[in-house]
Amino acid sequence: MPGDRGEAVKVGGKLRGGGSVPPRVPCHGRARPGPCATVPCASPVSAPSAPGHCGGGAWGAVTQQVGQEILANLHTDREKIQRARERLRETDANLGKSSRILTGMLRRIIQNRILVFILGAIILLTIILAIYFNLRGH
């Protein structure tokens, strides 16, 4: 039943439950509420500005402006992506250099540890031999 779901119902020439109904104006063959110039027309055809039609020239200008803004945004986004890509390449090159430097440092650390153990063993052997020959001579 009309009016059960909160819809406006016309009773006695007056609208009950929703205010007044705006007049319906044809827009490219479709009835649209309110004046056509204030309601966007869903038709892809650009119609001339005439009574009963959407303002095709105004919508074309708006569409062109939106298109230009989108292209400008895409251009700036492309520049940002290119700068980020270049930064990424530089970072990758720097990481490669850092990796080679760290590998060289680790190799030197291992070489130094081996050298310290060898020198420690030689000094320990020298001390043991000195004590042995010193005690053997008595």
Rank of each mutant, 00 (worst) to 15 (best):
V116G: 01
F117L: 15
G96Q: 12
H75G: 08
G13V: 06
S99Y: 10
T38L: 07
T126S: 14
L102G: 00
C36L: 05
V25N: 12
C36A: 14
G67T: 01
L129K: 04
R32E: 04
C54I: 02
P26V: 04
E79Q: 15
R136F: 10
E90W: 00
E69L: 13
I114T: 13
Q68F: 03
L71I: 03
V25Y: 04
I114E: 15
H138W: 12
G34P: 01
I131S: 08
G17R: 02
L135F: 14
R30C: 01
G57L: 09
R5G: 05
G12A: 11
A130D: 11
Q82W: 05
I81L: 15
R87F: 05
R108P: 01
M1Q: 10
C41N: 00
L15Q: 12
R16V: 12
R89K: 13
V21F: 05
G120W: 03
L102K: 12
K10P: 01
D4N: 09
G17H: 03
G67Y: 00
E79T: 10
L106F: 13
F117C: 08
N73Y: 08
G137S: 14
R108C: 05
I122P: 00
S46Q: 14
A50W: 03
T103K: 14
G67E: 05
Y132K: 09
S46V: 12
I118Q: 12
F133C: 02
G56P: 00
I127N: 03
P40C: 01
S43P: 00
G55I: 04
R16Y: 11
I101L: 08
R30E: 05
I101V: 15
P2R: 06
Q82N: 10
Q111N: 11
L124S: 14
V66Y: 12
G19R: 09
N94W: 06
T126G: 14
W59L: 11
N134Y: 15
A31K: 12
R83Q: 13
S98C: 09
L135V: 11
L125E: 07
L74N: 08
N134W: 14
I128K: 06
W59H: 08
G67K: 00
G60F: 03
P40Q: 05
G19E: 01
L125C: 12
L124D: 02
L71N: 09
G13Q: 05
G96F: 04
G57P: 04
S98D: 10
L95T: 04
M105Y: 14
I122L: 15
R100E: 15
G17W: 00
N134S: 11
H75R: 15
L129G: 00
P2A: 13
P33Y: 13
S46C: 12
L115F: 04
V39R: 05
G120P: 00
G96I: 04
V9A: 02
Q65V: 06
Q68D: 12
V25F: 03
G96H: 07
